[in-house]
Amino acid sequence: MPVKIIELEAENIKRVKAVQIVPALNGLTIIGGDNNQGKTSVLDAIAWALGGDKYRPEAAQREGANTPPRL
Results as ranks from 00 to 15, higher is better:
17 K>C: 01
69 P>N: 00
39 K>G: 02
12 N>K: 03
26 N>C: 04
65 A>E: 11
6 I>N: 08
8 L>C: 03
13 I>F: 07
35 N>Y: 00
48 W>A: 13
44 D>G: 02
28 L>F: 09
41 S>K: 11
39 K>N: 02
36 N>P: 00
3 V>S: 08
36 N>Y: 03
61 Q>R: 15
49 A>R: 12
49 A>D: 04
5 I>D: 06
39 K>H: 04
60 A>W: 10
58 E>V: 13
16 V>K: 07
2 P>G: 12
63 E>K: 13
18 A>R: 15
62 R>L: 14
7 E>A: 05
8 L>E: 03
68 P>C: 00
40 T>M: 09
58 E>P: 00
54 K>V: 10
1 M>L: 08
27 G>W: 02
21 I>A: 02
10 A>G: 11
17 K>R: 11
4 K>S: 12
17 K>F: 03
65 A>F: 14
70 R>L: 09
42 V>L: 12
49 A>S: 15
44 D>L: 11
37 Q>I: 12
56 R>N: 07
68 P>L: 00
61 Q>F: 05
13 I>L: 14
19 V>P: 00
17 K>I: 01
66 N>Y: 05
16 V>C: 11
16 V>D: 04
1 M>G: 15
37 Q>W: 09
55 Y>V: 08
70 R>A: 07
35 N>V: 11
68 P>K: 00
7 E>N: 12
68 P>I: 00
36 N>D: 13
31 I>G: 03
35 N>G: 05
30 I>F: 11
